[in-house]
Design a protein around this nucleic acid. Structure first.
Lengths: 338, 338
DNA sequence: TAATTTTGATAAAACCTTTTAGCAGCTTCA
DNA sequence: TGAAGCTGCTAAAAGGTTTTATCAAAATTA
């Protein structure tokens, strides 16, 4: 027995006033529109009595705003993204926005499809981890004046707001830390990817080894999605072929988890034989034996900046777009593995 | 220079036909409504040319359906929930639905607030992990004919659809497994909670020890949210006070992670001194040394059933509500810790 | 007193769809 | 020849809001 939802019209009729009047009162424009306190009170009381709530859908239609922001992650089940999702959610709700999420699996096709379906939904903004080759879509989005903020990585060819971290600098520091701890033959394990975050981490590694004169080694693995088996086997082979490696920098934690297993299978002791640093700190690095040194991204600050930026874009849509590019520092958590 | 979005009206005007005609053609009712193939083609071609996409907001308003489902988790950044979120997302999108997520932190107040804001949004359905004391809100929701499915736990006092797992049976099996491996003094570590999933796991544990005649021990911890520090300290004290414990059943993986650390600090060897089983398998249980025996919930099947159930409720709203109660089996993954 | 301003409100358009009811004009059948 | 049925299409209402333009009555000013 679903009681019919009460609308402004019902209120107006019941109280013998006009729809306009009710709307003004609801929106706090009673004073401004010279509605008498008497009428105002009557309407407010009635609203409370019947528990009226405005229809967001109707508001969306009328105002062209949905109060919905899309959060497009590479994979929402990944700890990094789900943690950000959690922070973002809180900040969004506090500001009256809701979040619709989706995962691209780093696949352009999927990303394009998702973006195009969301455009129809009148969403107010997009927070996106861009897949490779997404430049054109992002440009379109921006031309159509959709607020967009990228994160985790960015697109050099598009002048779009983004929130990222100091990938190069932190990778440099991490590598330098390895070298300072006596590593002579460091390896850099990364993904086959020309996305900015990976490139920057690689550059950081290279600059560090170049500066100190040691000879490094690099391994780039294919992107595995969840369904496939991890890169364990490849890592195992790599480490068994290159016995002289005495330090490893993992470009992302998922590689570290697999790599640590491989090193363990090979009987390499950490940190005695091999020292280890990983990008992207994780709860489990603290539980590992030995505890793993890692670079921690400031998840909450990233989320804060993302929301701040997107809300800024949404709320001053008219006042001329200026992209905001935010680069945040990370923190190197030194633990037992180095 | 945002090009104005084209509407049905624009198409009608441009082509000199009526809005009705265009709408019929768009919705594949041309034949049925005897629109000539000639007109039909003309309209379709034009639509393709200008790239018309219907406004979902207007459709929502007109049809009273938003094609949005709410996914209300305890905490979206928790691996269990984010994994389900990932599966759900996929299944929802394939069926033309979008997912809005939110986290309750197991707090009724927050849950109530969230539900009430979502009601206004004309969402089509709710997938919920109920917090304690949420019965009334769920009842209201159901009375207002909102489709609802609960998961992870359920509310005995409400006849609402749910998808859960065989908590009691699996806890029994896990405990029984410990005992069969020679454990004489098993401990059950859980949360202070009277939610069904925890109660059932506890019952399973109790029945297993009762059946075999061994004497068990229980510890119930407070629910910690993310901001607070974990229950490490309490676990440490518990284990150091009860040196005779030679087997532990953790009711959820987060407790296991903390508990394992505590056991390690105390120098207890696993599995020689203490055998360990945990509810909720996790990628990291396989990386641990030793690898931890755990009960794996069928995440994908849970998600499938959730979507199936909610879609069923959404699409046959009229045909009389019958709650569906689905209980899925888990899998005991025996590893090195037992 | 007449003209003007202020007060307290309202009608109606707009946002974009879907869908019911209906309207000419033509064909068929008795 | 008149009634009934079909064909191809459309007008208009409804869904719930916001906002602009407008209006009558009362109050103020000249």
């Amino acid at each position: 027995m679903a009681k019919k939802r009460v609308s402004i019209k019902d209120i107006a009729k019941a109280l013998g006033v006009s729809i306009t009047t009710v709307s003004f009162i609801i929106n706090g424009k009673a004073r401004e529109q010279r509605i008498s306190d008497e009428v105002s009170k009557k309407v407010k009381d009635y609203i409370k009595e019947v528990g009226y709530k405005p229809s967001h859908v109707a508001q969306s239609l009328r105002l062209g705003k949905s109060k919905i922001i899309v959060f497009m992650a590479e994979d929402i089940s990944n700890q990094f993204f789900s943690s950000i999702a959690r922070f973002i959610e809180e900040k969004a709700y506090r500001n009256g926005y809701k979040i619709i999420y989706c995962s691209t699996d780093n696949d352009v096709g999927k990303a394009k499809e998702l973006i195009s379906t969301f455009k129809m939904r009148n969403v107010d903004g997009f927070i996106i981890t861009p897949t490779p080759d997404l430049e054109d879509v992002i440009k379109d989005l921006m031309e159509e004046e959709f607020p967009v903020v990228l994160f985790d990585r960015w697109l050099p060819d598009v002048d779009c707001s983004h929130v990222i971290v100091e990938n190069k600098k932190s990778a440099f520091e991490g590598t330098d830390h390895l070298i300072k701890e006596g590593v002579k033959r460091p390896a850099f394990i990364s993904l086959e990817s020309d996305q900015t975050q990976m490139i920057d981490r690689e550059t950081g590694f290279r600059e560090a080894i170049q500066q100190s004169g040691v000879k490094g080694l690099e391994l780039k693995l294919k992107f595995h999605n969840l369904a496939e088996s991890g890169p364990y086997q490849e890592l195992f082979e790599f480490f068994s072929k290159n016995r002289d490696i005495d330090g490893v920098f993992f470009a992302t934690n998922y590689l570290a988890f697999e790599g640590l297993q491989a090193l363990d299978s090979l009987g390499r002791n950490i940190p005695k034989d091999v020292k280890v640093v990983s990008f992207d700190d994780h709860y489990f690095f603290g539980l590992f034996k030995p505890k793993i040194t890692a670079i921690e991204q400031p998840l909450e600050t990233i989320s804060e900046k993302l929301m701040e930026t997107i809300l800024n874009h949404i709320e001053e849509l008219d006042k001329g777009y200026v992209s905001r590019k935010i680069i945040l520092p990370n923190k190197l958590n030194i633990r037992e593995s180095t």
